[in-house]
Simulated assay, not measured.
Amino acid sequence: MDVISLGNEEFEGRNNAYLLDGETTTLVDTGIATPRTRTQLREGLAEHGHDFSGLDAIVLTHFHPDHAGLTGEIQAASGATVYAHVDDAPLIERDEGALAELDDRRHTLFEQWGMPDAEREELLAFLDSHEGIAGEPARVTRIEDGDGIEVGDLVLETVHTPGHAAGLCCFEFSEGREAFVGDAILPVYTPNVGGADVRVEAPLERYLDSLRTLVARDYERVWPGHRDVIEEPTERARFIVDHHRERTERVLSVLSEGPANAWAVSAALFGDLEGIHVMHGPGEAFAHLDHLERNGVVERDGREYVLVDDPDLEALIPPA
């Protein structure tokens, strides 16, 4: 297995694509559809004696453009089979109905979150100007939790870990001791929940469940979608659970001062935001507020959330 490092100035920094060489030459994630990243991926493949046309399969951790953007172009050049979870497949295929539903959901939530008009226009302009990074549509072979994907001498077992994205999957190998984890856990920062994929219902609850899945799997090491290999993934997953408990405590502190909407809570947590973070910040705040509402700690009155109970934080978000 070879790591191909790809630039990503549009979002969160360096991406990883993973090349599995052998009878079935496979790429795990493809990078964002920009000229710079396309060149880097071509050069990385060439270092190992491959090009786009020689790939047999592409395995995608999730639909986000910095992981799937070049997929359609590569498939057009190679005829490669593309595997992705059933929940993300319509977006990778650029299905008009699925894209319209995503757009409608975003607009509904932006209103519910209390996003001011100026920031909303800024965000929509950013999204429109970056529409091309999603690349060309691809034909997707749909997979689900527990499915095995044969790639040469390896079988990748699909482990569905929703939260950051509805269809985010990890793919374990080496007799279950290692895995490609996409953005399920990352080595430096914590994956966004709530804004990164507004289709996810109960986003924080689902993400915490996914983190507990990774703890239960207890991998020796994992290969993330960004930056470097994670050598102690179980501890990293536990750290992120604890991080979300601490963030929930901060959200409760904001609400103790009076009712607030997701935008106001986001401002208290993250300050001023720009670019994609105009969506990610209030989305993360919403994920926590939604979790508190589902557990009877807050009530929503229109756009605002009102604190109605003083929770036991460890009962609300137990350690993993």
Rank of each mutant, 00 (worst) to 15 (best):
L204Y: 10
L55E: 07
I276S: 11
R177H: 11
N192M: 14
T213Q: 02
F239R: 12
R212V: 09
V278N: 07
V278S: 05
T30N: 06
A237N: 10
L99R: 13
D56A: 08
E121D: 15
P35M: 05
D117Q: 13
M115I: 06
L211S: 09
A196I: 12
A89F: 02
V297E: 06
A84T: 08
D301N: 08
E111N: 12
V193Y: 06
L55P: 01
A268F: 06
D128F: 02
R221L: 13
E10V: 15
A315M: 07
V306A: 02
V251I: 13
R42S: 09
A267P: 05
G148A: 03
V306S: 06
G135Y: 12
A84H: 08
F173L: 13
L214E: 00
T34H: 02
P191G: 12
L289Q: 04
L168Y: 06
D88N: 10
D310W: 14
A17S: 13
D95W: 09
P319G: 08
S210R: 03
D87G: 08
R221D: 09
A165V: 03
L211H: 07
G79Q: 11
A80F: 02
P203M: 01
E150Y: 04
R199D: 05
G302R: 03
L273P: 11
G44V: 01
N261P: 10
G69W: 07
R120F: 01
I92R: 09
P162S: 03
E205H: 12
Y189S: 14
P203K: 09
T26K: 02
R217G: 04
V28P: 10
L123S: 04
E101W: 03
V3I: 15
E201D: 14
E23Y: 04
M1K: 02
G271K: 07
H280C: 07
V278R: 15
R142L: 00
H85S: 01
D95M: 03
F63M: 14
V251P: 04
D312Q: 07
E172F: 11
T24L: 00
H48A: 09
D301W: 06
R303D: 15
F11I: 15
V229R: 13
D21W: 04
H243N: 13
T141S: 11
A179N: 00
G176Y: 11
R212H: 10
A237M: 06
V265R: 09
V151D: 04
T158C: 06
